[in-house]
Simulated scan of single mutants.
Amino acid sequence: MQRRPFLRSALLAAAATTFATVAAAQAAYPNKPITMIVPNPPGGIVDSSARLVSDSLAKVVGQSVVVDNRPGGSGNVAYAHVARAPADGYTLLASYSAYHVGNPSLSPKLPWAQKDLAPVALVTAGTNVIAVHPSVPVNTLQEFIDYMKKNPGKLSYASQGNGSLAHIGTEMFKSQTGTQMVHIPYKGSGPAIQDVLSGQVQVFITTPPSVMGHIQSGKLKGLAVTGKTRHPSLPNVPTTAEAGLKGFELEAWVGVFAPAATPADVVNKLSASIRQALDQPEAKTRAAGAGIELRYLPPQALEAQVKRETEFWADIIKAAKITAD
């Protein structure tokens, strides 16, 4: 009879010790290096955003933040890795909007689900640029649309792969303008850019970092940017609305996510640290140079954006009959 109170006391003491240990670990977060998994190869908006944020975040939290590129499977390799990682705040995902909100509609058998990932913060956003090879005999967006209507299927457009934002966005552009182009998918922006520069493929709707320098040098023509305002590094390129195509907007974003079971206090502390990191002067300078917009959203707002965009892209994907690689 005397052993029961003793065992109960021992169990309570053990539980208290465990709770205190976990609480102390969370309070001290982070006390070791953090890894940022990137679902894309080096280069482009996702990798650039991850490196920019990681460098500034390391200074804020006092721990190194290591970028680990794990491309493959239209992002699914990286997403599945983070979804299965320990939920302790030390393995994070730099999530690309096209993968995050598009992949669930592209394939019913993903090795991850949106519910497996906890939103931490939106970090960057980028408009897209409608770029064409100089061999295309147009100088404005309206001339481009008119040319395609007179020459249906004559031009081809590049994308970073089936189901990428460039693929889905260009199909949306075709639908809205009543034009036809042939889709040529690539494995990333690098090889796509090479063929667009050579004229083998004539059109690329993509984020500014991929084509900005080529437009500035005259190797490509920038017909319009797909955001609400002009891009600061391409001040002479009008928006689609200014160019006469109202209602067509296309943005990419990068957000940070953690495994779903990550404690809320760790997520909130990390989100606040990311916000502080984005406010660093060096981060702002690097973002401006790369043509990336820093745009912070807290976890709840990012979660709402994911839900809204997932529903929107599901309709586009279904209407265009887009499938994954």
Rank of each mutant, 00 (worst) to 15 (best):
P5Q: 09
A10G: 06
L11F: 15
T17W: 08
T18N: 00
A20G: 11
T21K: 00
A27F: 11
A28F: 00
I37H: 07
G44K: 01
S49V: 03
S49R: 02
S54R: 07
S54Q: 09
D55G: 13
Q63G: 06
N69Q: 06
R70Y: 12
G72P: 01
S74G: 11
S74H: 11
Y79I: 04
H81W: 11
V82T: 03
A83C: 05
A85S: 15
A87N: 08
A87R: 07
L92V: 05
S95T: 10
L106K: 02
P111E: 03
A113F: 12
K115N: 10
L117G: 03
T124G: 02
A125M: 13
N128G: 11
N128T: 15
I130G: 01
A131H: 00
L141F: 04
I145Y: 03
M148V: 09
P152S: 09
L155E: 00
Y157E: 04
Q160P: 00
N162S: 13
G163H: 01
S164M: 04
L165G: 13
A166H: 05
T170I: 10
T170S: 12
F173R: 03
Q180P: 01
P185Q: 05
K187D: 15
Q194G: 12
L197T: 03
G213W: 01
G218M: 07
K219I: 07
L220C: 08
A224G: 07
V225P: 01
P232R: 07
P232G: 07
T240M: 13
A241S: 15
L245I: 08
L250T: 10
V256F: 04
A260Y: 09
A261G: 09
V267Q: 09
K269E: 04
S271P: 05
I274Y: 02
L278K: 01
A283M: 04
A288K: 14
G289V: 08
G289E: 12
A290W: 08
G291L: 00
L294K: 03
L294D: 00
L297K: 12
Q300L: 10
K307M: 11
E309F: 11
A314H: 11
K321G: 07
I322K: 06
